[in-house]
């Protein structure tokens, strides 16, 4: 055993040596990347030649989810207009907070773009992350899905009015499933509660699909989830959507009127949206290049077909429009969330 111990010394010496090397190397490299910064700053004073290399698109959710799939479909089209490849990078964790933070603190050079979702305007009100929409500069919004009021096909409520009347007469009895405490569907249902003067029994599930399953099984009374999430069952005659909670009907469920048309109740139209942003210090000319590319991508027939196949609502807005949406959403959630008693 003693015979081999010199090798261990060599090994440990090697480790120490490597550490020393990396420390020196680290120093050297930082200064050189500083040089790059100056160079790119100089070039951006003139007409931008962005992008010179491939762009990363951060997706704060796992590969395979709806946001991931949308990001990949969008990236595929945007590559054509950007003239560079776009690599989708899933940065999961903290219900989106890890990816948002990563996106907000990235180098503001336009090479890191983040796909953000409605959670950007809810998580910080829930005290779950310090990151807000204000740390980003919007590129484009591409999607919005409205809430619905969906019940079982054999339920006694044939119209939205009957549902509202029953819920009003029986406060706390109607079980409304949602996709998790503080999730968008919880908040949409809460907004309806507030504006229509109702009280639901909110049942949290781990996502929208289990909530719909529970509704099919008759374990809860209604779900507020998007048209796409109930379309298959509505078409098959197992579920009935009473109203779309939006200012216009949904293409995914033709024939279903809006809540206001049905009942006259006005409520805040809260639903999940998705869009693309960059860190707030990104130069304007770079933002312009990205906005052009992503807006054109969202308008491509292939992307539209993807969205329609998935029943996702296409709502395309440029930076200014997207900024306004985030501002309004953030304000509504700022009022709604504390009132729900979710913040402790």
């Amino acid at each position: 055993m003693e015979r081999g111990s010199w090798r261990k010394w060599v090994a440990s010496a090697a480790v120490v040596g490597m550490l020393a090397l990396t420390a020196c190397g680290g120093g050297g490299n930082t200064s050189s990347s500083g040089g790059d910064d100056k160079a790119s700053a100089a070039s951006s004073e003139t007409k931008t030649d962005f992008p010179k290399k491939s762009v990363n698109l951060i997706v704060p959710y796992a590969a395979g989810g709806g946001t991931d799939a949308t990001a990949r479909a969008l990236a595929k089209e945007a590559e054509k207009h950007l003239g560079q490849s776009i690599a989708v990078v899933n940065k999961t964790g903290g219900g989106g907070a890890v990816g948002f933070t990563e996106g907000a603190t990235a180098k503001p050079d336009g090479y890191t773009v983040t796909m953000v979702t409605v959670e950007l305007t809810t998580l910080h009100h829930l005290n779950l992350t310090p990151v807000t929409y204000k740390e980003f500069k919007p590129i484009a919004q591409i999607n919005f899905d409205p809430a619905t009021i969906t019940v079982r096909a054999d339920s006694p409520w044939k119209t939205a009015q009957e549902f509202i009347d029953y819920a009003k007469a029986h406060p706390g009895e109607v079980k409304v499933g949602n996709s998790g405490p503080g999730s968008i569907w919880h908040l949409s249902a809460a907004a309806l509660e507030k504006d229509a003067g109702l009280k639901f029994n909110h049942v949290p599930f781990d996502g929208a699909a289990p909530a719909v399953t529970a509704l099919l099984g008759g374990h809860i009374d209604a779900v507020p989830v998007s048209p796409a999430e109930v379309k298959a069952q509505v078409d098959a005659g197992k579920l009935r959507t009473l109203a779309i909670v939006d200012d216009k009907p949904s293409d995914a469920l033709p024939g279903v009127k809006t809540l206001e048309e049905e009942t006259g109740i006005k409520t805040t139209y809260l639903g999940p949206w998705r869009g693309v942003v960059v860190p707030k210090d990104t130069p304007d000319d770079v933002v312009q290049v990205l906005t052009d590319a992503f807006m054109k991508a969202a308008d491509e027939p292939a992307f539209k077909e993807y969205m329609n196949n998935n029943g996702l609502g296409i709502v395309i807005k440029d930076g200014a429009g997207f900024e306004k949406l985030m501002e309004e959403a953030d304000q509504s959630f700022g009022e709604l969330i504390p009132a729900l008693g979710l913040v402790k």
Binding site: G94, L128, G180, P181, D206, K344
Partner: peptide, 18 residues
């Protein structure tokens, strides 16, 4: 996060533990 109330338990303020 607590599955019903959304209260963060034993996360020690670490977003990765949320």
């Amino acid at each position: 996060l607590d599955p019903v109330s959304g209260f963060p338990r034993f996360t020690f303020g670490e977003v990765n533990l949320m």
